[in-house]
Design a protein around this nucleic acid. Sequence first.
DNA 1: AATCAATTATTGACCTATCAATAAATATAG
DNA 2: CTATATTTATTGATAGGTCAATAATTGATT
Lengths: 142, 142
Amino acid sequence: MQCSFSNQEQILQLLKGLNNQISPKFERCTGITSTRYELLHLLYETEEINQSNLQKAVNIDSAAITRHLKQLEANGMVTRRRNPSDNRVIFVCLTEEGRKQIVGYKKEKINFVNQMLLDFKPEELESLSDMLNRMQHNIREY
Amino acid sequence: MQCSFSNQEQILQLLKGLNNQISPKFERCTGITSTRYELLHLLYETEEINQSNLQKAVNIDSAAITRHLKQLEANGMVTRRRNPSDNRVIFVCLTEEGRKQIVGYKKEKINFVNQMLLDFKPEELESLSDMLNRMQHNIREY
DNA sequence: AATCAATTATTGACCTATCAATAAATATAG
DNA sequence: CTATATTTATTGATAGGTCAATAATTGATT
């Protein structure tokens, strides 16, 4: 197949294709969705946090956050309560059960990521992370 | 927030978050989904191609391909016919209308990608594309 | 030739995202 | 103080993706 995609144009497709492949494999390997994992991980580090902050941290919209957290609450991983001094916001907090679970997930995630980034040198990782951040920044205003 | 994610671990989330942001913006800017665009683009370069090859090229599963192509057919962008010498496979082909449309889409896509990759040097693009391919390769067997 | 295996496409069920509309609480302006 | 605007979370509708099951055709084995 003649390659009439410029390098620039290919990047977008690579990104999309890579993500399509990663998502189901991540879940199979770790037993949890990567966004759910990220939510739990963030909660692991912060005592209590409101939904809108979580939402911004994870880059999904507020509807998705609501549904994830309700699900996690139903599974006993998370508790939610309204902020007494501002009844609009909801504080989210990891349960003991959630704290226990995340440890196992983390191990699996590290295995997965190690395999995915096999033979990547530290400079490469840094450069990759830098470029992804720049792309994110470049399309911010769109 | 203390950053207890290693660089390795962050990459996965960056990828996912970036994709979440890109997809709707790409569609707003170009008027077409990025996978649909890729399908049309591939068809633009090859006279006729069967679905399973398209599927592999785009990295989505066969169910998704079927639905996309039926939709594109309903919109008059594409024709589908069975391979006479192997009645399992379906040949897909771009219509004249489709050929016309893709030109406009391409222009918009280039604008979008240029903005997204603003200030990226050619070596960076090459390195990025290389790394994404390696990641894809590393998780192939999972 | 007949059975069994593999390939191709399709369908239904499900999950995760988006967007748009809404409700409820708080902040701001006059 | 009241009216208006803004923020936060929720819900319903829609779209794109996966998986699993199926049908239909072809390929292989014996």
